[in-house]
Design a protein around this nucleic acid. Structure first.
Length: 442
RNA sequence: GCCGCGGUGGCCCAGUGGUACGGCGCCAGACUUGAGAUCUGGUUCCCUUGUGGAUCGGGAGUUCGAAUCUCUCCCGCGGCGCCA
C-alpha cells in the first residue's frame, strides 16, 4: 500500500498519479473524507479513554484506602459504554478507510510512458537475430528499433502445438479429459528439456549471488493479501476449498511474504532470492486467447528473481534483474525486445515494469516471456518489512522479475529451434550439459 | 487428529487482577586525544505531540480495571496416532 503520511501531505502527487493511470480519482476523495472523520473521532475516543484510565486509577487507590467506590464505578461504566459505541463506529470508518487506501495505486515512475493501451509501450531495445517470415517483415520493423538485425525466410515455422504433438512431447487431449482446458501432459525429452531449463536457470542465478529457495506453493489469506492486491487478483487465484489457503500464482508471493512483519538489519540488504515453484493461474478473462498448446496455461513452472533492498538502490536493481533475464535469453539464442510498459497497463503495485518479449516465428510476433517490476515500497509496506537505520525503521523496497517461465520458453525453443529437414528440435547449446542430448526427434 | 507444555518490545527474561520489572544489544549526549569503561537520556505503533491513546501470539468474553481469569483460533516444542 501507499504511504498514508505522504498521501496526507502531498495530495496533488496522487491525483496526478491517477490521471497518469487513467483511473478515477474518486478513492482519493473518499479517503480524505474518511480520514478526516476518523481523526476527529479518534481524538474524542482517546479523551474518553484518558478519563476512564484516570478514574480506574483513582478506584485502585481508594480501594487501598478502604473507601467506598461504588459511585465512581457507575461513572466509569457510563464512560465505558460511550467508548464502546464510539469504537464500533471508529472501527467501521477505519476498515472502510483501509479498504480505500489499499485501492490507491503506487506512484508511477517518471520514466514510464504515459498512455493507455499496450500498443503505446515504449520499445527500449532489441537483441539477437530473429528469423522472420517474409510476410512478417513490416510487423517486425514496426516493432523493433531501426537497424535491428534479422534474417528472412520463406518457410513459416510450424506452431509449437503441431510440432510437439507430432513428436509425442505433449498430450493436450488427455489433459483436457482429466483436468480441463489449459492443462497439459509433458512427455519424454520435453520433460528433460524443461528440467534442464530450470537447472540452468538456478545455476545461472546462483552464480549471480542469488539464494535459491523452494517456497510453499500455497499461502494463507493474510500473506496473500499483503503480498498482492487481492481485490484485483482474487479472480486469478485458486482457493483451496474449506481451507485458508490459496495456490500461488508465482514464487513472488511466498518469497515476498517470507519476511512479512520482520525487521532486518541494514547489513542484511540487499537480499537476492531466486524462487523456484509451479505457478497456478485461473487465466479468467483470457477466453479465446492462446487457447491451443502450452503458451497460456493454468499451471507452469517458473524461476523467479526477487530482491529486498534499500530505496536508494531499487532502480539499479530493476536494471540488474532485467539484465539477468536478458542475458539468460541471449545465452539460449532467443531474439527478443525489451518494452517499457506504459502507465495505463501497470498493476497497482508497480512503479515501473519492463517486459521481455521473445520473437515467436510461427506466430510472427513478439510475445511476453519475462516481466520485471519495481514495486518500490508499496509491497514492502503492506508486508510490513522494515530495516533498522540510525533514523528509525525504514520500509524495504521490493522488486521481482521472471528468470524463466518454462512453458513459454519451451514454446519459444520449439518455434525457434525446429529443423525443417529433420522435423525435430535442436537443443540450445547451453542446455546440452543439462539434458545430455542435443536433439529431439520423433 | 489427540494429550501436555509454551508464545511478553530487536534479543533474553520477570510479572497469578491495580495499568509491563530488569538485563543485553543499538542510538544520542557527557567524560576522553581516540577507543573502552562509566554516567544520562532514548530505543513498538497511532493521532491534532499530550499530565494523550493503544500494545504482552490473534479474536471474543468476565471486571471499574486483564500479560494475569474464561472461551476460541493460530504458531512453536515434546509425546501418541496416521503417513510418502
Amino acid at each position: 500500500m501507499i504511504d498514508v503520511k505522504l498521501l496526507r501531505e502531498h495530495r496533488e502527487l496522487f491525483y496526478d498519479n491517477c490521471r497518469k493511470r487513467f483511473m478515477d480519482p474518486e478513492p482519493l476523495d473518499r479517503f480524505f473524507a474518511l480520514d478526516e472523520s476518523w481523526r476527529q473521532m479518534l481524538k474524542s475516543v482517546n479523551e474518553l479513554k484518558h478519563r476512564k484510565n484516570e478514574i480506574s486509577m483513582k478506584i485502585a487507590s481508594l480501594i487501598k484506602a478502604k473507601e467506598d467506590v461504588s459511585s465512581l464505578k457507575n461513572d466509569v461504566r457510563e464512560v465505558g459504554e460511550s467508548i464502546d459505541k464510539m469504537e464500533l463506529e471508529l472501527a467501521s470508518i477505519d476498515r472502510e478507510r483501509n479498504d480505500v487506501v489499499r485501492s490507491i495505486p503506487n506512484l508511477v515512475d517518471a520514466s514510464v510512458p504515459v498512455c493507455k493501451g499496450d500498443e503505446n509501450n515504449a520499445i527500449v531495445r532489441y537483441s539477437g537475430s530473429a528469423v522472420v517470415h517474409e510476410d512478417d517483415i513490416s510487423y517486425f520493423r514496426q516493432n523493433t528499433p531501426p537497424g535491428s538485425s534479422f534474417s528472412v525466410t520463406k518457410d513459416r515455422a510450424v506452431s509449437h502445438v503441431d510440432l510437439l504433438e507430432k513428436l509425442g512431447l505433449i498430450d493436450m487431449a488427455r489433459a483436457g479429459k482429466t483436468a480441463g482446458a489449459r492443462f497439459y501432459y509433458l512427455k519424454n525429452r520435453l520433460v528433460k528439456l524443461e528440467m534442464a531449463l530450470m537447472n540452468y536457470a538456478v545455476d545461472f542465478l546462483s552464480e549471480r549471488g542469488f539464494t535459491i529457495v523452494e517456497p510453499p506453493f500455497m499461502l494463507n489469506f493474510d500473506s496473500m493479501n499483503a503480498v498482492t492486491d487481492l481485490e484485483t487478483f482474487k479472480d486469478a487465484l485458486y482457493k483451496i476449498d474449506g481451507e485458508d489457503l490459496f495456490l500461488i500464482a508465482t514464487a513472488e508471493h511466498p518469497i515476498g511474504a517470507m519476511l512479512k512483519d520482520e525487521i532486518l538489519e541494514e547489513s542484511d540488504l540487499p537480499l537476492r532470492v531466486a524462487g523456484i515453484s509451479p505457478c497456478f493461474r485461473k487465466e479468467a478473462g483470457a477466453h479465446g486467447k492462446d487457447t491451443k498448446g502450452i503458451f497460456r496455461v493454468h499451471q507452469f513452472n517458473k524461476i523467479e528473481q526477487f530482491v529486498f533492498c534499500k530505496p536508494e538502490h531499487s532502480w539499479d536493481f530493476l536494471e540488474e534483474l532485467l539484465k539477468n533475464a536478458e542475458d539468460f535469453c541471449s545465452s539460449l539464442g532467443i531474439a527478443y525486445r525489451v518494452v517499457n510498459i506504459c502507465s495505463g497497463e501497470l498493476s497497482v503495485l508497480n512503479a515501473k515494469k519492463y517486459d521481455i518479449e521473445a520473437w515467436f516465428p510461427a506466430q510472427g510476433k513478439f510475445r511476453e516471456i519475462v516481466s520485471a517490476s519495481n514495486n518500490t515500497d508499496y509491497q514492502g509496506r503492506s508486508l510490513n518489512i522494515r530495516y533498522r537505520t540510525k533514523n528509525g525503521n525504514q520500509i524495504v523496497n521490493t522488486l521481482n522479475s521472471t528468470e524463466v517461465a518454462t512453458t513459454r520458453m519451451l514454446v519459444a525453443i520449439a518455434e525457434n529451434f525446429q529443423e525443417k529437414d529433420s522435423g525435430g528440435i535442436s537443443v540450445p547449446k547451453v542446455l546440452v550439459p543439462y539434458t545430455g542430448f542435443d536433439f529431439i526427434s520423433s
